[in-house]
Computed example of a mutant assay.
Amino acid sequence: MTIVRLSAATWSLAAVSVGVLLGGCSASVDVGTSTTKMSSDKLATIVAEKLAATTGQPKPDISCPEDLAGKVGTTTRCTLTADDGSTLGVAVKVTSVDGDQINFDIKADSAASPAPN
């Protein structure tokens, strides 16, 4: 099995290009609860999968600070962290809710923040 390791520069470049690629990217998830809400862990997993599928890169390290409420217009910010410690913000915005299904758009920032020294 071949393991692909991306250099920090490659991931940073890929992360920046994600902003261009994800301008109209969206996702849809059935959360299966009475209160329509998606856990921060599930949201991070879905965002990582969508980014990987869009860029053709391995799933990035994504963290989301809070659960996503199933209300149109609700937003949250997730963070992509590259191997070198640089980060890229990823905005998530709920576009529609159909019962337990939350539909949302994903948009990565256009520039990464450098790793802390």
Rank of each mutant, 00 (worst) to 15 (best):
54 T>Y: 02
80 L>T: 02
71 K>Q: 12
87 T>E: 07
78 C>E: 04
67 D>K: 05
108 A>S: 06
51 L>P: 03
18 V>R: 01
80 L>H: 15
6 L>H: 11
64 C>H: 03
1 M>D: 12
8 A>R: 13
20 V>N: 10
48 A>G: 06
10 T>V: 14
54 T>R: 09
56 G>L: 00
34 S>D: 14
108 A>M: 10
76 T>M: 12
14 A>E: 08
9 A>V: 10
3 I>C: 05
88 L>F: 04
5 R>H: 12
5 R>P: 00
113 S>A: 15
107 K>S: 01
62 I>F: 05
107 K>M: 06
36 T>Q: 05
64 C>Y: 08
77 R>E: 15
117 N>C: 09
2 T>R: 12
85 G>I: 05
27 A>C: 12
80 L>K: 09
39 S>D: 07
100 D>G: 12
54 T>N: 00
7 S>Q: 06
44 A>P: 04
51 L>M: 10
42 K>I: 07
104 F>P: 02
61 D>S: 15
111 A>D: 10
30 D>S: 10
59 K>Y: 03
37 K>N: 13
9 A>W: 06
52 A>L: 01
53 A>N: 11
96 S>T: 09
55 T>P: 01
21 L>W: 10
66 E>F: 00
98 D>V: 09
62 I>P: 07
35 T>N: 07
70 G>D: 04
99 G>R: 02
90 V>K: 00
7 S>L: 11
82 A>D: 13
18 V>L: 15
75 T>R: 15
37 K>W: 00
73 G>H: 03
74 T>H: 03
12 S>I: 06
78 C>I: 01
63 S>N: 12
116 P>Y: 04
88 L>C: 05
17 S>E: 12
84 D>Y: 08
86 S>W: 02
98 D>Y: 07
58 P>I: 08
31 V>K: 01
94 V>N: 11
74 T>Q: 14
67 D>T: 09
53 A>P: 00
106 I>T: 07
15 A>P: 02
95 T>M: 02
69 A>P: 00
31 V>M: 05
80 L>A: 05
115 A>Q: 11
5 R>D: 11
100 D>W: 00
23 G>Y: 11
98 D>S: 15
18 V>K: 03
108 A>C: 09
33 T>S: 09
55 T>K: 05
68 L>C: 02
26 S>Y: 08
19 G>R: 06
